[in-house]
């Protein structure tokens, strides 16, 4: 078992929480604590941390989704609703978008944002666990999960759950931090993640620990090829990924057979 497979069951009942090992049933509450803490300033911090590039990563992910008017889309770990808002305009009044998140504080911020921007009528908000999605089998055209999978305790279970609810031919898009392809970029990225990011978290959100967890959880997340294999194991076909910004982020796409 590789270092990056530690989130999968190991026989003991512990899992990663950043660089620490915690009881599997505790991780949900600890992740919830992190996101409760950062929810109010999540969008601002995303813009600051990525210099606004997260909008471009999401823009490309939405293009890859090839979602059409009238379709049903679920955005898991959708948090503050920026992706759901875009999908809401694409699917139109005949389609449906579900903004799903395990964290009530993030959903609250998302709901307020969607109302403020007039994205109403075809969006539902659901508080749920990605490992056990509360949707019928074969009912969804497209699922996206952006910067959320690394926080899930059992990623394999989550991918299987997504595969279950997708319609045959439906597609899953996983946008997540990954492994830089250039060693020099990786070094610079490490310095940024472990020195600058917690500092920014302390200054802007008054919460260095949460942002340290975010950096650590990125390092513990499976790299591009490992995640590709996990998606294939969950039953997805035609799986592929696109590296963005030198592999700092990758978007994986899989189709339900």
């Amino acid at each position: 078992m590789t270092d990056q497979d530690k989130d999968t069951p190991t026989g003991d009942d512990t899992t990663d929480f950043g660089f620490s090992r915690v009881k599997r049933d505790q991780k949900v509450n600890m992740v919830r604590g992190v996101f409760d803490s950062v929810a109010a300033r999540y969008d601002l911090m995303n813009d600051l941390m990525s210099a606004g590039i997260h909008r471009l990563w999401k823009r490309f992910t939405i293009e890859l989704s090839a979602v059409r008017p009238g379709q049903v889309v679920v955005d898991i770990a959708g948090g503050t609703g920026d992706i759901a808002e875009r999908f809401s305009r694409i699917v139109g009044p005949d389609g449906q978008v579900v903004l799903a998140d395990i964290n009530a504080a993030m959903l609250g911020v998302g709901r307020d944002r969607l109302i403020d921007r007039g994205a109403l009528g075809n969006i539902d908000l659901v508080q749920c666990d990605a490992q056990a999605l509360p949707f019928p089998d074969n009912s969804v055209d497209c699922i996206t999960i952006a910067f959320g999978l690394r926080n899930v305790t059992d990623k394999d279970a989550a991918l299987r759950s997504m595969e279950r609810v997708l319609k045959p031919g439906g597609r899953l898009l996983v946008l997540e931090f990954s492994k830089p392809t250039n060693p020099l970029l990786e070094q610079a990225y490490d310095t940024y993640s472990f020195r600058i990011l917690p500092f920014m978290g302390r200054v802007v959100a008054n919460d260095a620990d949460s942002y340290r967890y975010l950096a650590e959880s990125i390092r513990k997340h499976p790299d591009q090829d490992t995640l590709l294999g996990m998606m294939e194991d969950a039953g997805f076909v035609d799986c592929q990924y696109h590296n963005m910004t030198g592999g700092i982020v990758a978007v994986h796409r899989g189709i339900k057979a």
Partner: peptide, 16 residues
């Protein structure tokens, strides 16, 4: 995956 360009860079250019 073989990529000739960074999709994020192209997205940025196109968005602007």
């Amino acid at each position: 995956m073989n990529q000739t360009h960074d999709p994020a860079a192209l997205s940025g250019l196109l968005a602007g």
